[in-house]
């Protein structure tokens, strides 16, 4: 379903993604596990037509995101790490617009929108402007919106960051059902070990733009002779996973500094 060969992304002289190769099978749940700044989001952006690679090849469901972006865009849905809602629209309008852009038929759109908004506990706030929402509410809306259409592949970039445990559970339940019933391929990034271990069938560990190991969590543990994914990670990278510290704006700022120099 996803094939990546020798993929590299450079921002000027800085190598954010360094010659990575991996593949994800049809109907698989695959996790990209790595610390902040490892290159997870940059990889997702290249897979989803938002960035063009400096080098290497990507094939999504048989098509190249660079040469055939419109076909590729039809095959996936994505929940971004950073906000991507329209603040001046209501929750309902955001969902509706998404449904229209993704060709979800009207009736189905309304049914699913209601179900999902109830799932993320925003049904009574559906007519409020998104700008009045708290960070957590926006995050929940973002997730609901991302699940509205049922694509072949769903990309989720740190989906559970800042979510309460209850919504987190709802989300994974919904996704697992989708994976089972429609054999949706799920590609997600996280820096939570336990999430990768519990949800994903296969994991790739990425650090400093390189994939340093991949396999099932059992394989990773036996490769490193450890008892938990946490220890395996430590053995592979020599360090504890860093918590997400910098916000994306901070990151943009540092990126820009690097640029100007």
């Amino acid at each position: 379903m996803i094939k990546v060969n020798n993929l590299t992304k450079k921002f000027h002289n800085f190598v954010a993604v360094d010659n990575i190769s991996f593949s994800v099978n049809d109907g698989e749940i695959f996790a990209f596990l790595g610390p902040n700044g490892a290159g997870k989001s940059t990889t997702i952006k290249m897979l989803t037509t938002l960035l063009s690679p400096t080098n290497g090849e990507v094939i999504i469901n048989g098509h190249d995101p660079v040469r055939e972006p419109d076909i590729v865009r039809r095959t996936f849905g994505i929940v971004f790490q950073d906000p991507s809602l329209d603040d001046e629209l209501t929750a309902w309008e955001n969902i509706e617009l998404h449904g229209v852009l993704y060709d979800v038929p009207d009736k189905l759109r309304k049914e699913r929108a209601e179900q999902l908004l109830k799932y993320v506990d925003l049904w009574d706030r559906k007519d409020s402007l998104v700008k009045e929402f708290s960070g957590g509410m926006k995050r929940r809306l973002e997730i609901a919106r991302g699940l509205l259409h049922h694509p072949k592949i769903i990309f989720l970039d740190e989906p559970t960051l800042g979510l309460d445990p209850q919504t987190r559970n709802h989300m994974w339940t919904y996704l697992k059902e989708l994976n089972k019933n429609e054999s949706t391929t799920i590609f997600f990034t996280t820096h939570y070990m336990e999430e990768a271990e519990r949800i994903a069938q296969r994991i790739a560990i990425i650090d400093h733009g390189k994939i340093i190991a991949s396999g099932t969590s059992e394989e990773l543990k036996s490769q490193t002779n450890t008892n938990s994914l946490e220890e395996a990670f430590l053995a592979l990278t020599g360090k504890n996973i860093r918590e997400e510290s910098a916000s994306s704006t901070d990151r943009m700022r540092t990126a820009r500094h690097r640029w100007r120099r």
Binding site: D70, F80, D82, S84, L85, L101
Partner: peptide, 14 residues
């Protein structure tokens, strides 16, 4: 800046 552009840019439309 507010991120909505991403939502439009990945949508399946030209």
């Amino acid at each position: 800046q507010f991120g909505f552009l991403k939502e439009m840019m990945v949508a399946p439309m030209s």
